[in-house]
Design a protein around this nucleic acid. Sequence first.
RNA 1: AAAGCAGACCGCCUUAUCGCUGCUCAUUAUUGAGUAGAGGAAAGUCCGAACACCAUAGUGCAGCAUAGUGGCUAACGGCCACCGAUCGUGAGGUCAGGAAAAGUGCAACAGAAAGAAUGUACAGGUCAUGCUGUAGUGAAAUCAGGUAAACUCUAUGCGGUGCAAUGCCAUGUAAACCGGUGCUUGAGUGCGGCACGCACAAUAUCGGAGGGUAGGCAGCUAAAGUGUCAUGGUAACAUGACAUUCAGAUAAAUGAUAAGGGUUUCAUGUAUUUGAAAUACAGAAUUCGGCUUACAGGUCUGCUUUUUUU
Length: 120
Amino acid sequence: MKTKLGRLKKEKLIGALFDKGASIKKFPLILFYAPSAEWQSGVSVSKKLFKRAVDRNRIKRLLRGAIKQQWPRVSSFNVGPSNFMILYIGKTMPDFEAIDQAANTLFDKFLERIKNHENE
RNA sequence: AAAGCAGACCGCCUUAUCGCUGCUCAUUAUUGAGUAGAGGAAAGUCCGAACACCAUAGUGCAGCAUAGUGGCUAACGGCCACCGAUCGUGAGGUCAGGAAAAGUGCAACAGAAAGAAUGUACAGGUCAUGCUGUAGUGAAAUCAGGUAAACUCUAUGCGGUGCAAUGCCAUGUAAACCGGUGCUUGAGUGCGGCACGCACAAUAUCGGAGGGUAGGCAGCUAAAGUGUCAUGGUAACAUGACAUUCAGAUAAAUGAUAAGGGUUUCAUGUAUUUGAAAUACAGAAUUCGGCUUACAGGUCUGCUUUUUUU
């Protein structure tokens, strides 16, 4: 069965995620997540770290690309759906490879964590 | 040929694989197919408008902006032409280019003296005196001086807030509580000044503490649109004909990876081979017209000066 990954676009949900959601860090990324009715994802880059819109757009596209790569693993993992949000916290411009590797370890941790939650 | 001036334009391409957003058509409750998908500055948010609401936005003050003349434009603080000043051999560049007999202020150095008037030398003149001339300092010395990127004055223009405008639908609550003001002899409100005026105004309004919502649709992209040609005009621009439909996202689509090829620079090399590096500034958010700033590299057009050749 295929599960759909929606976009996280409700401001309220995002606010709640930052306030109450759990977080996992793997430099240069942070992942916030919380259980939810359906799978939704979002990405963000601080305006303070990257002043130009072009740079922020590029990083966000790289992050979305990375999520796309990881998605088959997550959807077939057989856990309850969650909302999650990835932030970029590095200060230099990354390349695709760096993001991809970081995302890989990040999702390893993520899946392990929610698996444990389910078992409790 | 070299150096330079002005204007216009381009600003990486191709293929494959994996994706994103809108629309259309299928299929159906999950997909598939087709198609379109960032810029010359999308930027700064500095001007001007359209559009929306507040009174069809009114009067005075305050405040702000502009400043040769004429034209263009929906409008402008923009653009075009001409005049003037100024810089350049020149093509051309630059200009905060209204008023100094309304008033106030300011002026380094030099100089006796800088807006107050008057000193020295020589000469002239007088009853007498800087009364007159010349010399001397300076950009300027009584001349209706200079200065308005000093106040000021004059002329002209300007109401405010912005698409988070505004309208509708959905959801939810609290017409609860405390304090102030006011109830037709008028508190307050009408989205930053003051006064007037106008409109609304009593289950009203302001403040406190607290609760709820912050989702969707319209506005939202066919327009002062874009391209070509013709005509008028020195030009900005206008008129006409034909063709054309060209992003609409909302934690915000327009991308990632690989291979090949361009272009430029450097090295090697000398029938353009091989290698390396670079490939800019930058990302739509209601929409237009400008201005300003950023920009690897390149193309085209017109013109100027110098030198050489004929």
